[in-house]
Amino acid sequence: MANFLDKHREKVVMFNQQYRGKRKLKTTKIDVPENLFTRCPFCQDLILTEAVEANDYVCPYCGKYFQISGRKRLAMLVDPGSFIEYDKKLKTSNPLNFPGYEEKIHKVSLETGENEAFISGKATIDRMNVMIGVLDSHFLMGSMGSVVGEKVTRLIEASITERLPLVIVCASGGARMQEGIFSLMQMAKTAAALARHNDARLFYLSVITHPTTGGVSASFAMLGDIIVAEKDALIGFAGKRVIAQTIKEDLPDHFQTADFLLEKGMLDIVIERKELKQTIVKLLQFHRQEEDHDR
C-alpha cells in the first residue's frame, strides 16, 4: 500500500494542485478519465481510486472512512470466490400499498444493482465456513422492511441448520417507513430467530458499521455474542436530530459514536477498518466447533 501511494504520490499531488485552483467553482465533473480519481467526501482531496480501494476505502490523507456498498464490504471480508449468495429471488412488494413505494424500490434497484438492502449467503473467512450477511447502506439507507427481515431470519436459520457461525455486518438507518407495522415486526422476527440461535449454542458475531440506528440497532445488531464496531461509526436508537428537537438538550460531539458506546459499556471492541478482518478471523477461531478442531 505504502509503495503504491509513493508511486502515485507525484501524480496525485499535481492533480490536487491543479484542482485546488478550481475547487471554489461549482464543478463536479472534472476533466479526467471517469473513475480514475475519487474525491474524499471529508477532506475533499482527490485520490486515485485504486489507492482508495487498496486502502480498504479509507482516505490515505485524512484517515476518514468511506461508506461502502454491501458488495464491497463483503469482498473485503470473505475469501475470494467463496461466497454463495442465498435468497437472491426475494423481492420487495408493497405491503401497505404505500404511495410511490414500488417506484422508489425500482429506482434504487437500478441505481445499486441490488434487489434489496441485505446481501446474505455462505462463505469462508480464512478458510472457515460462515454464514454471513451484510446490510447495504446504499440501498434506501439499509432500512429494514419485510425482505431484509426475512433474509436475516433465513440466514440465522441456515446458520442453525448447518451449525455454522453467523456474522452480520450492520449499516442501517433503521425501519423501512413505507412498510409500517411490517417493518416493526421484523425486529421481533429476527430477535425470535436469534433466540433459537442462542438455544442452539452457536456463535453470532455482530459487526456494526456506520451508521447503525433505529430498528436494526434495537434488534439483531445489539444481540451479538460479541459486538465489534468500526471506528467512528454512528450507533444509536433515536436519531440525533429527534433527540435535539424533543429534549432540547445539548449533545456532546462524540454522542452516539462507537467510542461513546464503548465508554458506556455497550460494545466489546471498537476497531480500525484495516484490522477488522483479522479480528473477525481471531474471533471465529476462538469459537470453532469440535468438528473443526479435528481437521
Partner: peptide, 26 residues
C-alpha cells in the same frame, strides 16, 4: 415510543429493547 434522550441512549436503550425482545421468545 421509546424515550428520545441523551440518558436513554447512554444507558443503551437499543440493547435493552433488543434483549427484551429476544428474551420474550423464551
Amino acid at each position: 415510543g421509546a424515550y428520545p434522550g441523551f440518558e436513554a441512549e447512554s444507558r443503551g436503550q437499543a440493547e435493552a429493547i433488543a434483549s427484551l425482545l429476544r428474551l420474550l421468545f423464551t
